[in-house]
């Protein structure tokens, strides 16, 4: 495994960290993501497992994580890029891995990240959605639920200290 990672480092010139057995990660610039994935695909990462997104609201970034799988070497590689939260645009990888089309659609819908060049970036599972994307951390789920579905949120009442009467 380590041999493979070293070889991969030498060939692609990428800085890959081994995290666990069968798992490694790598961080690249936003602009280099297409080139990186092309190189990795050439080295045998034929399977694009999934694409996930993390909302780091304090740092004002979205982190996109591309999960790749190498069948022969049994290596799960996570390629991470950081993008600006205020202007979330990134180039698509759907022409390199065709399955990425759907994952990009999902991320677009749940986080509002735009993928330049994706031909099928149409609405996915949400219908009639007029709010900000629901998986963003500044979306107040409880407030939305209260307005839309007439349910009650008793969090404050439950965690209100009973001993305030002694103040």
């Amino acid at each position: 495994m380590s041999d493979f990672i070293t070889r991969l480092k030498n060939i692609t010139g990428l800085n890959i960290h081994k995290e666990k057995l069968y798992q490694a990660s790598l961080k690249v610039d936003k602009e280099k993501i297409r080139k990186t994935l092309l190189d990795l695909k050439k080295e045998g990462f034929l399977q694009f497992t999934t694409l996930t997104c993390i909302d780091w609201i304090e740092e004002k970034t979205f982190q996109l994580v591309y999960h790749l799988w190498h069948r022969e070497e049994k290596l799960h590689l996570k390629v991470k890029i950081d993008i600006d939260r205020d202007a979330p645009i990134v180039e698509t990888v759907s022409d390199i891995y065709i399955v990425a089309q759907t994952y990009e659609r999902e991320v677009k819908e749940m986080f509002g990240v735009d993928f330049k060049g994706n031909k099928r970036l149409i609405p996915f599972i949400l219908e009639d959605w007029n709010e900000i994307p629901p998986m963003r951390r500044d979306f107040n789920t409880r407030e939305y639920v209260k307005d839309m579905y007439e349910t009650e949120d008793r969090t404050e009442e439950i965690f209100k200290p009973r001993w305030k009467k002694y103040d």
Binding site: L126, P134, F139, V145, M148, Y149, T151
Partner: peptide, 18 residues
Amino acid sequence: VNGGMYWDSYATIKKLEL
């Protein structure tokens, strides 16, 4: 009846009788 374990989900309805 009342939303069940999805009581704070943005996607599901809570009270069917509405």
